[in-house]
């Protein structure tokens, strides 16, 4: 298994970047974004950000059984149904994505 390395240890932010470093950092960021779902970037738009937050929230609800039970009581549903609903909502948590600006 590849070592799980935290972002801090791969990028030395104290160094003054030069041109080649910048390229290097960008590629490293890309690598991090691919590896850690939800890592943001400079061009992140509002929708993408919200989708990430929502997916993280739903995953957290599903992962913490007491919270799932708390929701189940509020909605008067079975815990299993509540879990299924949350998982289903991970597909389009914030509705349809906005149209891309063609530029």
């Amino acid at each position: 298994m590849k070592e799980l390395v935290s972002p801090k240890s791969t990028i030395d932010l104290t160094r003054v970047p030069n041109a080649s470093d910048r390229f290097n950092i960008n590629s490293q960021l890309e690598h991090l974004q691919a590896k850690y779902v939800g890592t943001g970037h400079a061009d992140l738009n509002r929708f993408e950000w919200a989708v990430n937050i929502q997916r993280d929230s739903y995953a957290s609800y599903v992962g913490h059984y007491p919270i799932l039970a708390y929701f189940a009581i509020a909605e008067n549903e079975a815990i299993g149904r509540e879990r299924y609903n949350f998982m289903q909502k991970m597909l389009l948590p914030c509705g349809l994505p906005p149209e891309r600006e063609e530029d």
């Binding site: 850690y36 939800g38 993280d56 995953a59 957290s60 599903v62 992962g63 913490h64």
Partner: peptide, 9 residues
């Protein structure tokens, strides 16, 4: 912790 991409679910 219990997160989206941390296995364990």
């Amino acid at each position: 912790g219990c997160r989206r991409i941390v296995p364990g679910q």
